[in-house]
């Protein structure tokens, strides 16, 4: 098995006695897009900061590119581009000048800057001062700055934040092509479940600092439940009659989990035989959003 690009063992970060990141065992393989999902405060940003050495971990180990992070920091960071929380920039300088600054630090040529500006679609606005950029443009600049060192790994904290749908699609396509064509590993965090769904090969779900799921979308779908809702005129009787199917009674409706399609006709027969009237039957598959909330153990309130 190929060594994962990012591997953490029991990664922990404690603030004021509470483990904001609790025993994380991440495995991010090369050339894949890893979607880091979690609510606000779940520990996504803290984890990413530890992976970049911006915050020292309270416990555990980090290995990036197969080597321990602490000892090979400089080499690792040379190949890693990142955005953490809000984009960083010098507002009084132009987009081009901001990149020029990075050029000087990273020892990179001017052509690279131009390439990267064109890649994110900021080439036309490169001579405008960044303080006058819109939020979306600032975000693009941050992505450009992350890409400038031709990285093998990208750690991006909500990179599509503030972009319009067009922009989100562009960045999504860009990240996908970088991963496929240049074998760059991308770790992105997001709240946008739909985004993660469209872009990630592997998903990691963080809740209260713990990694409660890590796997492909297909593996996640195994959690996908079928939900069958049956509205009858006598819910309590129905509960008794159909007890073999383990229904729950919610709002006077019978809810069944993972009922196969074939099981439905005999079920209806049973109800009819017991004299129970059926108003409505619906049979649906949970989408990723419902699934996500199921996994993190919260019910989504109907709006």
């Amino acid at each position: 098995m190929k060594t994962p690009v990012i591997k953490t063992e029991n990664l922990t970060k404690t603030y004021g006695g509470i483990n904001r990141v609790d025993g994380l065992n991440l495995k991010i393989p090369e050339g894949k897009i890893y979607g880091f999902l979690g609510a606000n405060g779940a520990g996504k940003t803290t984890t990413m900061k530890m992976l970049l050495g911006l915050t020292p971990p309270s416990g555990g180990r980090i290995e990036i590119f197969g080597t321990p992070f602490e000892e090979n920091r400089i080499e690792i960071l040379k190949k890693t581009g990142s955005i953490i929380e809000n984009p960083s920039y010098y507002g009084h300088l132009t987009g081009k000048e901001n990149l020029k600054l990075l050029e000087k630090i990273l020892d990179v040529s001017e052509e690279e800057s131009e390439k990267v500006l064109k890649l994110v679609g900021l080439y036309e606005e490169r001579d405008k001062k960044v303080k006058n950029y819109s939020l979306g443009m600032k975000q693009r600049l941050a992505i450009a700055m992350a890409l400038l060192r031709d990285p093998k790994l990208l750690i991006l904290d909500e990179p599509t934040n503030g972009l319009d749908p067009e922009g989100i699609r562009e960045i999504r396509e860009l990240l996908k092509s970088l991963a496929r064509k240049r074998n760059i590993t991308v770790m992105i965090s997001s709240h946008q479940l739909s985004e993660i769904e469209k872009i990630a090969d592997i998903i990691g779900i963080l809740k209260d600092g713990k990694l409660i799921f890590e796997g492909t979308l297909k593996e996640l779908e195994r959690y996908k439940k079928l939900k069958t809702t049956l509205e009858t005129d006598d819910g309590l009787l129905g509960l008794e009659v159909l007890s073999d199917y383990h229904p729950k009674l919610l709002d006077d409706k019978l809810v069944f989990e993972n009922l196969k399609k074939e099981e439905i006709p005999p079920l209806i027969k049973k109800l009819v035989n017991a004299g129970i009237g059926i108003y409505e039957l619906s049979h649906e598959q949970l989408n990723l959003e419902d699934l996500y909330f199921e996994i993190i153990g919260e019910r989504d309130e109907p709006k």
């Binding site: 960071l77 040379k78 953490i84 809000n86 920039y89 010098y90 507002g91 630090i105 990273l106």
Partner: peptide, 17 residues
């Protein structure tokens, strides 16, 4: 303050400055 603004310390440190 140049660096305190916009978390520019992060930008610099992750660029190995």
């Amino acid at each position: 303050d140049l660096e305190n603004k916009n978390e520019n310390w992060r930008l610099l440190i992750t660029a190995n400055e």
